[in-house]
Simulated assay, not measured.
Amino acid sequence: MSQFLELTERSQHLLKVLIERYIDEGQPVGSRTLSRGAGLNLSPATIRNIMADLEELGLIASPHTSAGRVPTVKGYRLFIDSLLTVKPLEAGVTRELWKGFESLEEPHELLGAASRLLAQVSRMAGLVTLPRRGQVAFRHIEFLPLSQGRVLVVLVTDDDEVYNRVIRPSQAFTPSQLQQASNYLNARLEGKRLTELRDAIRQEVQQTEKRISEEIKSVLEAAGSLFMKPESLEEDYVLAGQTNLMDFTELSEQARLRKLFEAFDEKRDLLHLLDQCIEAEGVQIFIGEESGYWPFEQCSLVTRSYEVEGRVLGVLGVIGPTRMRYESVIPLVDITAKLLSTALNQKLASPS
């Protein structure tokens, strides 16, 4: 923002026009082009001086092969934060997005539809992270006795997923004791996130130690061990439209495109980047090197979280070149996240 305050009104206007022109055409913008398209009564010499000032501030740069200028990451950031006019999404587009959701029943179908719709409308890549196991909440648990002292744990989450795990407690339990433990946890832990369960169970054992039997305490401690391993909370995403990125000259160079597609397949670093958006409010934008991830050096990522009953489950977004049309991509991502949240709430909010 301090750099924004350093700019005169006409410098701001010229920067805005230059970036919009570059986004439209993908070619460096020269002073003569700006003098014709800026709508200001300025000579090419004056415009060249202003462009030199913008370049000194690090907002634009001059490629070696051209006399024109292109925006830098800093220039894009200032443009998005201070100069961009976001266009409301057309009502017809919103209706088409909702049509893509309303006929689907299963949560995984809704998530897949969201990634495809983002790709179709933006003509870039659309992605949606699957509900993070750490964000999904506990609904119900049952302990069922098996042979040889083993216990089957059936865990039901609030997104209607069912997980089965066999544990081997240090001692045998009767069906009655296991039922007592189930009742105890179901009465106290409903709504807790899965990542919170181990600590919550441990706390229950400590606080109620005098009011529960040693047998029930052992069952609870065994249940707590289910949530010790972070790999049991793995997350993933669905991606659509990645081949759309081949249509952009700056991304189509073979080595760069290969690295980008390898990043999509490898997933870990991209998921780490998306994880930064989970708790953030509103639309988040990473421009080029802001992602800290080399394969995305020429890309921007526009994201927003989606939720059920006010609880964030994951993130969706659009990946494209840094010269994407932010004024239309931002509302697209925003509305799609809200529509996906609405659709998921309708399918998942009421226990079946």
Score class of each variant (00 low, 15 high):
residue 119 A to E: 04
residue 120 Q to I: 01
residue 120 Q to Y: 01
residue 120 Q to L: 08
residue 121 V to P: 00
residue 122 S to F: 06
residue 123 R to V: 04
residue 124 M to G: 01
residue 125 A to E: 05
residue 126 G to L: 06
residue 128 V to F: 06
residue 131 P to L: 09
residue 132 R to M: 07
residue 133 R to P: 09
residue 133 R to C: 07
residue 133 R to K: 15
residue 134 G to H: 06
residue 135 Q to T: 04
residue 135 Q to F: 02
residue 135 Q to S: 08
residue 135 Q to E: 10
residue 136 V to E: 02
residue 137 A to P: 00
residue 138 F to D: 03
residue 138 F to P: 03
residue 138 F to G: 04
residue 138 F to V: 08
residue 139 R to D: 04
residue 141 I to R: 00
residue 141 I to M: 09
residue 142 E to N: 10
residue 144 L to W: 01
residue 144 L to D: 03
residue 145 P to E: 00
residue 146 L to M: 13
residue 146 L to R: 12
residue 146 L to E: 13
residue 146 L to C: 02
residue 147 S to P: 00
residue 148 Q to L: 11
residue 148 Q to D: 11
residue 148 Q to M: 09
residue 149 G to N: 12
residue 150 R to N: 04
residue 152 L to W: 02
residue 152 L to S: 03
residue 153 V to C: 13
residue 153 V to G: 08
residue 154 V to M: 11
residue 154 V to S: 13
residue 155 L to F: 03
residue 156 V to G: 06
residue 156 V to N: 11
residue 157 T to M: 07
residue 158 D to M: 13
residue 158 D to P: 01
residue 159 D to R: 09
residue 160 D to E: 11
residue 160 D to T: 03
residue 161 E to P: 01
residue 161 E to I: 13
residue 161 E to A: 15
residue 162 V to H: 04
residue 163 Y to D: 12
residue 165 R to S: 15
residue 165 R to D: 12
residue 166 V to L: 12
residue 167 I to A: 07
residue 167 I to H: 04
residue 167 I to T: 06
residue 170 S to G: 15
residue 170 S to I: 06
residue 170 S to L: 13
residue 170 S to C: 04
residue 170 S to H: 11
residue 171 Q to A: 09
residue 173 F to H: 14
residue 174 T to H: 08
residue 174 T to Y: 08
residue 174 T to G: 12
residue 174 T to D: 05
residue 174 T to F: 07
residue 175 P to L: 05
residue 177 Q to I: 05
residue 178 L to N: 06
residue 178 L to G: 09
residue 179 Q to I: 02
residue 179 Q to D: 10
residue 180 Q to K: 14
residue 180 Q to M: 14
residue 180 Q to N: 12
residue 183 N to K: 07
residue 183 N to M: 04
residue 184 Y to G: 01
residue 184 Y to H: 07
residue 185 L to Y: 02
residue 185 L to T: 02
residue 186 N to I: 02
residue 186 N to V: 02
residue 189 L to Q: 08
residue 189 L to N: 09
residue 189 L to E: 09
residue 189 L to F: 12
residue 191 G to P: 10
residue 191 G to K: 11
residue 192 K to Y: 15
residue 192 K to R: 13
residue 193 R to D: 00
residue 193 R to S: 05
residue 195 T to I: 13
residue 196 E to G: 10
residue 196 E to T: 08
residue 197 L to C: 11
residue 197 L to M: 15
residue 197 L to E: 06
residue 197 L to P: 07
residue 200 A to H: 01
residue 200 A to E: 10
residue 200 A to D: 03
residue 200 A to I: 04
residue 202 R to Q: 12
residue 203 Q to G: 14
residue 203 Q to N: 15
residue 206 Q to C: 01
residue 208 T to Y: 02
residue 209 E to I: 11
residue 209 E to N: 12
residue 210 K to G: 05
residue 210 K to L: 13
residue 211 R to K: 07
residue 211 R to Y: 06
residue 212 I to E: 11
residue 212 I to C: 04
residue 213 S to Q: 09
residue 215 E to T: 11
residue 215 E to W: 03
residue 215 E to S: 14
residue 217 K to Q: 14
residue 217 K to V: 08
residue 218 S to N: 08
residue 218 S to K: 06
residue 218 S to M: 05
residue 223 A to W: 07
residue 224 G to Y: 04
residue 225 S to T: 13
residue 225 S to R: 14
residue 225 S to P: 01
residue 226 L to H: 08
residue 226 L to V: 11
residue 227 F to T: 06
residue 230 P to K: 10
residue 230 P to A: 08
residue 231 E to N: 05
residue 232 S to K: 15
residue 232 S to H: 14
residue 232 S to T: 15
